[in-house]
Design a protein around this nucleic acid. Sequence first.
DNA 1: GGTCATTTGTACGTATGTATT
DNA 2: GAATACATACGTACAAATGAC
Lengths: 134, 134
Amino acid sequence: VSIDPRSDRPVYRQVADILREQITTGTLAPGAMLPSEKHLADTYSVGRDAIRHALSVLRGEGLVVTSRGEGTKVRDLAERRPVALEDGQYAIARMPTDPERSALKLTEGVPVVVIYAHDTVRHVFAAHDIYLTK
Amino acid sequence: VSIDPRSDRPVYRQVADILREQITTGTLAPGAMLPSEKHLADTYSVGRDAIRHALSVLRGEGLVVTSRGEGTKVRDLAERRPVALEDGQYAIARMPTDPERSALKLTEGVPVVVIYAHDTVRHVFAAHDIYLTK
DNA sequence: GGTCATTTGTACGTATGTATT
DNA sequence: GAATACATACGTACAAATGAC
């Protein structure tokens, strides 16, 4: 499993593919720490840019979580929990605003789901924590 | 309106704040092109990195769309359309996979909403195109 | 409590590829 | 074809958070 810089597929996506494979097959188990960005960069002989971009992809997919000063670990895919929409409520998905990121302790690349009732915000969830039902 | 590199608030967020302000107040009207990344970088005396990061934030919020070789323009707001969840359907939000990005012509930083019926994907939407109702 | 090494976050620069005009 | 604009990818540097000691 190696990186081809000349491939049409961007390097950062190749790295994301490799790590995703390791996560979904269990080589990297839930709760396990990934190697540091520097270590990964050295391992695959790519820049830290590409590694960070790859990790951002995986965060967006809800596969890993990253903490500053600590590192990146495999999420417990334990489960999204159901959230039901009530009458008169509607939901949108988008990237979080700054206060939302702070409140939910979200890292880069993680979307939120916002539930409105009568054009007022009722709930804000990290997207990978929930699924919406009728 | 200027950037303070010594502020606690990251430069890219300060830039995003400025542009967001201009969009929401109408200084940058829907459909209007933003200055190029290079132009913005020169204007605010920051690196292109910070500009790109700022634009990524705005894309995630659904405020602008970016096309390679063309530029970034202000989205027509208030054009999310309602999508109703049917019985047995559920929806999740996340960042898109690669095929999804291609199919929907999404750029960096834009989440998707995926509708499932009986654990099978039924629809995939760019998050900023829709809102979900019961 | 304080110090240090480690790790991620931000920010700059440069270069090259690719899509659009 | 040429110019413009975004995408990717490398490098460097420093700040800030964490954990170990």
